[in-house]
Design a protein around this nucleic acid. Structure first.
Length: 841
RNA sequence: GCGAGAGUGGCGGAACUGGCAGACGCACUGGACUUAGGAUCCAGCGGGCAACCAUGGGGGUUCAACUCCCCCCUCUCGCACCA
């Protein structure tokens, strides 16, 4: 018979089945272990891409596998629906953002359904839905009450021509991405979430995230950027006041021979007044300020500076030291001023050499050979202190402690910890986002919108020009409000929230997406949280994953949830590469999932995406490889089609009692199988073991290869003349059942179909994951490698578990080995049970 | 510069805790079946005639190293004048 694998028909059939039977709907069930499997929700850009296919295929394997293992699995999907592209579409094509977004969602939802993903679609959420973003506003109010949301001036990228703010990624080589005019820095009032309050906990929490990839944790630690040191005041030499610096190396304080201030440092102007250096310093500062930020902060930029004409006093040496302004000192970090220790800091070293400033060695190397004359570069390592007064002779590590204490004792400074992480600026001068729930009243100032007035709904009828800032500025009905406090004239905030706010808590909303009196149901959250497995792209290693952690901690402190961390385990999948470059529209190397699924079906697309590379590595796209995946599925299908007339009880009444119970019975009564069937059974049980173990550690590629191997083994069993042979039917039934079930998380549609072809009445999703039998999987015989001096010279088969002494005898009596040893006496013989013998002669 | 990771056939990739390097797939070669095959099934497939040589290069530990240690090279990603 010719059975052709027709994915189109099969896939739509089973998608309909799952839909109608609500197969993937879940509710809390205290009697089953819960498992929360989550993939990062997509931005509804228009269509899904291969990265999504890969990401969601992985999540689906995990979810389906865990379900078959008896877990109550929450596997939801939704839409990260606010964001700039919707607004750009409005500007370019005149389609309102809401329409554009909802159309995209409808299309992409359909695409995801065509992939056969096991989502509980009843829990779908969309962040641009007022029922969702209302809670962004609610959280904002809660955080405002606690002082975790605050407003202050901050510098932003400003395009004069477009009269709008630009995100950092919209500034390309210092120019506006839209109109190419020069981008300036502008000070604006902005809303911030005080993530810095949680810097320490976010950092120490990294140590507990043992289920996260090390490189993601490294990136987060780096981003938080903790450094411990001291702040020290350097008094000015001939006037009142002092300059505060921050250093992590107080052990080098005696070597501070000058100071450098950031060009933006507020003291500079008063310092230079009356020194005669005004013109020179101001023009230097002006020139530096005009430089592009990115260029200016690049490490390879030439260090330059200018003398202010003033001196400060090194509080330990009491020497007068010159105060400079230097381009490499950043106002954003520390105090915006540094003590310069040229002998022990490479930047200060270069600076001092250039401007002929004094240097002093205060840290000596272990050989004591360090001298200014011979130093080619700064000696930045720790060492023994010299020329450091009472601290001379101490080791750097101890000196750091002692000098810090001394400074505190003298009242000239204190131990301080600095973090690189900045507060999270959430204001966006954009339309398509969550309105920030605040009004500005002439009398009362900043007034939060009362909870009862939430949500502040985005107006729908808005004009998009792309110019003149947020379109909301043109909507009078939106802006003009009464003050909730005094009833007077007030103006509504027109900025919207960063879309990262939306994604910082969506995983909680999935637990109870319909709850309307609170952001989520506390009971439901405490049942489902944490997310047991989170899967997504590495590009979110800091921003989203850090913000979500921050939100989780804030919500915990608000008493809304009980967990400290949102994501227990994290899998970051690699990119999809084609022709040596990341698959992307701009590179023109995309493979459209619709096209792929249209030709080969979703099962093939999924299987290939998982087979071609380990999950965390980049996947090299190969059209041939896709065909290979399709060929494999066809091959499985053909074998099932070939044997189903004999195995399906409806087609063959003889097969009615062929089930696994019977196989067990056969084992017990000791009926002997022909050797090829016995070998196949062994392979079946070994495969179940290996596939199970590999899925547990996300080695999907090797799991699939083991299933392929088993199918190859099944093909080697001759069928002709055995279709009425009970032992043949028993073993084939067991083998095909195993293949279908093991394959089902990867290729669910074809698995359902084949399951049905064999006469099964239930869906594979309801069948428990196959269990292997240790005794059957056990190899009875082992191939022992016999080496002489580490080189393989012979092989011998022995029963498994043969004692070492016996193996040794067998090896030494092997004909080939005897010939090679001759009359030499082995010096030593190593025996590894069940593995090898190495004879050293 | 710092941090994380990687380097294995023609290609994607396997190899547990040190114990037969190259599973599985792709490509290729041969055979079978066929009017036909770019379908399917079976077989072969690192290099070398061989002894042997092969996991980026060089040392080392070991009876035994893709695996452990030291040095070096290359690539990818992230951070980067952070005081």
């Amino acid at each position: 018979m010719t059975a052709k694998y027709d994915p189109k028909e099969i896939e739509s059939k089973w998608q309909r089945y799952w839909d109608e039977h609500k197969t993937f709907r879940v509710t809390e069930d205290p009697f089953r272990p819960k498992y929360y499997c989550l993939e990062m929700f997509p931005y509804p850009s228009g269509r899904i891409h291969m990265g999504h296919v890969r990401n969601y295929a992985m999540g689906d394997v995990v979810a389906r596998y865990k379900t078959m293992r008896g877990h109550n699995v929450l596997h939801p999907m939704g839409w990260d629906a606010f964001g700039l592209p919707a607004e750009n579409a409005a500007i370019d094509k005149g389609v309102p953002p809401a329409i554009w977004t909802h159309d995209n969602i409808a299309y992409m939802r359909d695409q995801l359904k065509k992939m056969g993903l096991s989502y509980d679609w009843d829990r779908e959420i969309t962040t641009c839905d007022p029922a969702y973003y209302k809670w962004n506003q609610w959280f904002f109010l809660k955080m405002y009450e606690r002082g975790l949301a605050c407003r202050r001036r901050s510098s932003v990228n400003w395009c004069v021509s477009c009269a709008t703010i630009l995100a950092n990624e919209q500034v390309i080589d210092g120019q506006c991405w839209r109109c190419s005019s020069t981008v300036e820095q502008k000070e604006l009032e902005q809303w911030f979430f005080k993530i810095t309050d949680y810097a320490e906990e976010l950092l120490t929490g990294c140590d507990k995230l043992t289920g996260w990839p090390e490189r993601v944790l490294a990136m987060q630690r780096n981003w938080i950027g903790k450094s411990a040191g001291v702040e020290v005041d350097f008094p000015l030499a001939d006037s009142d006041g002092s300059i505060r610096i921050f250093t992590t190396r107080p052990d080098t304080l005696y070597g501070a021979t000058f100071m450098s201030l950031a060009p933006e440092h507020p003291f500079v102007e008063s310092l230079i007044t009356g020194t005669g250096t005004e013109t020179e310093v101001r023009s230097f500062i002006e020139r530096i300020r005009r430089q592009d930020r990115i260029i200016r902060t690049a490490a390879d930029v030439e260090k330059e500076g200018v003398f202010t004409g003033r001196y400060a006093i090194n509080p330990l040496t009491k020497e007068n030291i010159p105060v400079w302004v230097a381009n490499f000192v950043l106002m954003e970090y520390g105090t915006g001023a540094i003590m310069a220790v040229p002998a022990h800091d490479q930047r200060d070293f270069e600076f001092a050499k250039k401007y002929n400033l004094p240097m002093r060695v205060v840290i000596q190397n272990s050989k004591g050979t360090l001298s200014l004359e011979t130093m080619p570069e700064a000696h930045i390592e720790e060492g023994r202190l010299v020329s450091s007064g009472q601290f001379s002779g101490l080791d750097s590590k101890i000196a750091i402690e002692k000098i810090s204490e001394y400074i505190e004792l003298q009242g000239i400074g204190k131990k301080t910890i600095y973090y690189k992480i900045r507060d999270w600026g959430i204001s966006r001068q954009r339309y398509w986002g969550t309105p920030i729930p605040v009004v500005y009243c002439e009398k009362c100032g900043t007034v939060p919108v009362p909870e009862s007035d939430l949500p502040v709904v985005l107006p729908r009828d808005v004009a998009f020009t792309g110019k003149g800032g947020s379109p909301l500025l043109q909507v009078r009905e939106f802006i003009e409000v009464c003050c909730p406090s005094c009833g007077g004239t007030a103006r509504r905030e027109t900025d919207t929230m960063d879309t990262f706010v939306d994604s910082s808590w969506y995983f909680l909303r999935y637990s109870s997406p319909k709850t309307d009196n609170l952001p989520f149901d506390k009971q439901a959250v405490s049942y489902w949280m944490n997310v047991d497995q989170y899967i997504g792209g590495i590009e979110h290693a800091v921003l989203h994953l850090l913000y979500a952690r921050f939100f989780t901690k804030v919500l915990r402190d608000l008493g809304l949830i009980d967990v400290d961390e949102p994501f227990k385990n994290l899998l970051t999948q690699g990119m999809v590469i084609k022709d040596g470059a990341k698959m992307s529209k701009s590179k023109g190397n995309v493979v459209d999932p619709d096209y792929l699924i249209g030709i080969y079906g979703a099962d093939t697309a999924r299987l290939f995406a998982l087979f071609a590379a380990p999950p965390e590595k980049d996947l090299d796209w190969s059209d041939r490889g896709v065909e290979g995946a399709f060929r494999f599925l066809s091959r499985v299908y053909r074998k099932v089609a070939e044997l189903s007339p004999y195995l399906n009880p409806e087609l063959n009444p003889e097969a009615a009692d062929i089930d696994l119970y019977k196989i067990k019975l056969l084992d017990e009564i000791g009926e002997a199988f022909p050797s090829d069937l016995k070998a196949l059974r062994k392979a079946v049980h070994q495969t179940i073991k290996k596939v199970t173990e590999d899925i547990e550690v996300f080695h999907f590629n090797t799991a699939i290869s083991f299933i392929m191997e088993l199918v190859n083994n099944i093909y080697l069993i001759p069928v002709d003349g055995r279709t009425q042979d009970r032992s043949f039917l028993y073993v084939m039934r067991e083998a095909l059942d195993a293949v279908i079930l093991l394959l089902s998380p990867f290729a669910p549609h074809i698995s359902e179909e084949m399951w049905e072809m064999l006469g099964q009445k239930s869906s594979v999703t309801e069948v428990p994951w196959p269990i292997y039998c240790t005794e059957i999987a056990q190899e009875e015989e082992r191939l022992i490698v016999i080496q002489i001096n580490g080189k393989i010279r012979s092989k011998v088969t022995v029963p498994a578990g043969t004692p070492e002494e016996e193996i040794r005898k067998r090896a030494l009596s092997d004909e080939r080995i005897k010939g090679l040893i001759g009359d030499k006496i082995p010096k030593k013989v190593f025996v590894v049970q069940d593995k090898l013998v190495n004879i050293v002669i």
